[in-house]
Design a protein around this nucleic acid. Structure first.
Lengths: 189, 189
DNA sequence: TTCGCTTTTTGCCAAATGGCAAGTGGTTTC
DNA sequence: GAAACCACTTGCCATTTGGCAAAAAGCGAA
C-alpha cells in the first residue's frame, strides 16, 4: 500500500486525512498466475493498481487469433478505461502472467473520492495520461524497430518473464509469428 | 469554434457562462502546410484543438532516421502532454501536413480554466484519455496487421492524404521502408 | 520548354518473416 | 514406464521486406 501512496504523491499533494480516505476505499486483490482480472464482454468496474506481478492485455482479431496488446507492470494501473468510463463491455482480456497483488477501487468508491478530495481529478488525469503515454511509447517502438531489437528490449524490461510465458503471447505482442520469434531467439544465442 | 464546443460537451456539461469563459481564452492559430506547430527541444506551452487539417508527430531515432509516430486529425487535440504537463522539452516535431486551423490555449489560461470551471478537470481527463486511447488503438493495429492491410486502413481513414504527403512519412508510420510501401502500392493497383 | 531538384518507382539481390508440418523435449497422467 | 499432451523448435519453401543504386516521374524556376 505504501507503494501506491508514494505513486499517488508523484502526481500531486495529499494530506494525511485524504490518504486515509483513499486507503479506506482500497481493497487488496490477489490473482494467481493465469487467472483473469477482466474478460471480454464484462464491464470494467474497478480501478486497479498493480503492486506485484505482471498482467497481459489481449483480444481476438477477426481471424480469431489472440493478440497480446501490451503488458502491465508493477506500479501501474490496470483498468479498461473505455469500459470503466463509459460502462460499456470490454473488448479485452486482462490475465495475470504471474501471481499478482492488485489494489482495487470499486467504481462507486472511486467516484466518491472524486467528490471528496479536492484535486483528486487532477491526480487521476495525470495518472491516466502517464499510463497511456507509456503504452504509446512502447507500442510505437515496436513499429519502428525490427523484431530482434524489440525482443531484446522486452528482455531488458522483463528479464525473467520471457521464459515463463507462452511464446505465442510474446510473439503476438511483437507482431510476429511464434516460429519467427523462436528463430530470433536461436540467432541471439 | 462550434465544433470545439460540441466536442467539449461530449465529455461533460457546461453552462453558457462557462462556455463564454472558455471561448474568451481561446486563440485561433493558422498553420500553412509544412509549418511546425512544435519542434523538438521546445516546451509545449499550448493546448491545441485541430478544427481543420491534419498534422503529423515525428521524431528522430538513434540512426537519425525520421520516424512518424502518428497523425492527428480534425477534431482532436494537439499537445505534447509530457512536455506540457511537466514543462520539459519535447522530443517530437509536430508539423502541419495540410493547411490547419487550430484553437489554442496558453498554458496559463488553460490552468485558469481548471480553477474557475467546476468539472473542467474531469472533462480534460476524459479528453486526454480518449485521445491517447485512440493512439494506442491505431498503433496497436499497425503492429498486429501486415503492412498492406495497415496501408489500406490508412487510405480509408485519410482518403485524400496518402498522395499529398511524402511517401517516406507514411512508410515510417507503417513501420516499413519507402520502397516497400511503393511496392505495396503497386500491388494494390 | 528546358533545366535542376526532389520524390517515387524499379531492379537486383540478400535477409527476414510467414505458413505448414514434422520433430523434439518436457511434463502430466494413468 | 508408456502414452498423451503441450510448448517450442526446426526444416522446407514461398512471400515479404530491406538495402542500395539507378531510372523514371513530378514539379517548380528560369
Amino acid at each position: 500500500m505504501e507503494d501506491f501512496i508514494s505513486y499517488l504523491l508523484q502526481f500531486g499533494n495529499l494530506n494525511p486525512h485524504q490518504i486515509e480516505l483513499i486507503i479506506k476505499k482500497a481493497t487488496q486483490l490477489v490473482l494467481k498466475k493465469d487467472e483473469y482480472y477482466l474478460e471480454a464482454g464484462q464491464i470494467s468496474k474497478q480501478f486497479g493498481f498493480v503492486t506485484e506481478g505482471i498482467l497481459r492485455v489481449s483480444y481476438f482479431n477477426n481471424k480469431s487469433e489472440e493478440i497480446t496488446k501490451y503488458f502491465i507492470d508493477e506500479n501501474n494501473i490496470v483498468v479498461d478505461l473505455e469500459s470503466f468510463d463509459n460502462e460499456i463491455p470490454s473488448i479485452a482480456y486482462v490475465q495475470a502472467m504471474t501471481d499478482c497483488n492488485i489494489i482495487v477501487f470499486a467504481k462507486r468508491d472511486w467516484q466518491e473520492l472524486l467528490n471528496t478530495i479536492i484535486g483528486w481529478d487532477a491526480i487521476v488525469r495525470k495518472i491516466v495520461s502517464k499510463a497511456l503515454l507509456q503504452k504509446v511509447e512502447r507500442i510505437s517502438s515496436i513499429v519502428a524497430q525490427d523484431a530482434t531489437t524489440s525482443y531484446l528490449t522486452f528482455l531488458q524490461k522483463y528479464p525473467n518473464l520471457a521464459n515463463r510465458i507462452p511464446l505465442s503471447y510474446l510473439a503476438s505482442y511483437l507482431g510476429i509469428t511464434q516460429s519467427s520469434l523462436s528463430r530470433i531467439r536461436k540467432n541471439i544465442r
